[in-house]
């Protein structure tokens, strides 16, 4: 079974603990600028939205890479960048429709979410369960349940 990151922006408080955990895991320091997950703030609407790679099954970045530096981890489903193969051409950053793969000037390679090998640190760090790691087939279950409660409310009245 593969799991997916399940993001519920309603629960996000904008604390950036996910970004801190991600940067510590991948860069060895607390450094949101280097995080693979970003909390995007829409201030005037009072909304905070955590956003990262959703690991497309048929991934644009994989297809675009001319040197096959992005490979599928079959255990997790993550698309992982092979640093020693990546040439830093950035074509994948153009191909990705979501902007979740990015070039790093420090290393000359691209970086993206790799699900931390199946133990995503952003999930552990999130204090409000805005980011959870669940069966990839059932990411909609909680919302389906919430909708069902509304749908049935009339009959119960």
């Amino acid at each position: 079974m593969q799991k997916s990151l399940n993001i519920d922006p309603e629960k996000c408080t904008g604390c950036l603990q996910c970004e801190l955990a991600c940067s510590l895991e991948h860069e060895g320091s607390f450094n949101p600028a280097k995080s693979r997950i970003k909390v995007i703030e829409f201030g005037s609407q009072g909304r905070m939205v955590p956003y990262t790679c959703t690991q497309c099954a048929d991934a644009w970045c994989v297809k675009a890479c001319p040197v096959n530096a992005i490979v599928i981890n079959h255990a997790t489903g993550a698309k992982e960048v092979l640093e020693d193969v990546c040439v830093g051409c950035k074509v994948c950053t153009i191909a990705c429709p979501f902007g979740t793969i990015n070039y790093s000037q420090d290393t000359g390679k691209v970086v993206k979410c790799d699900l931390c090998g199946g133990d995503p640190k952003c999930v552990t760090a999130c204090p409000t369960e805005a980011i959870t790691y669940v069966n990839a087939d059932t990411t909609g279950y909680d919302r389906m349940r919430a909708s069902a409660a509304i749908a049935d409310a009339g009959a119960q009245a």
Binding site: T13, G14, C15, L16, Q17, G46, M48, T128
Partner: peptide, 13 residues
């Protein structure tokens, strides 16, 4: 009240 918002790093909010 629209929502709550944390400061950087805050798990209280």
């Amino acid at each position: 009240l629209v929502t709550k918002q944390a400061c950087f790093g805050c798990t209280i909010a």
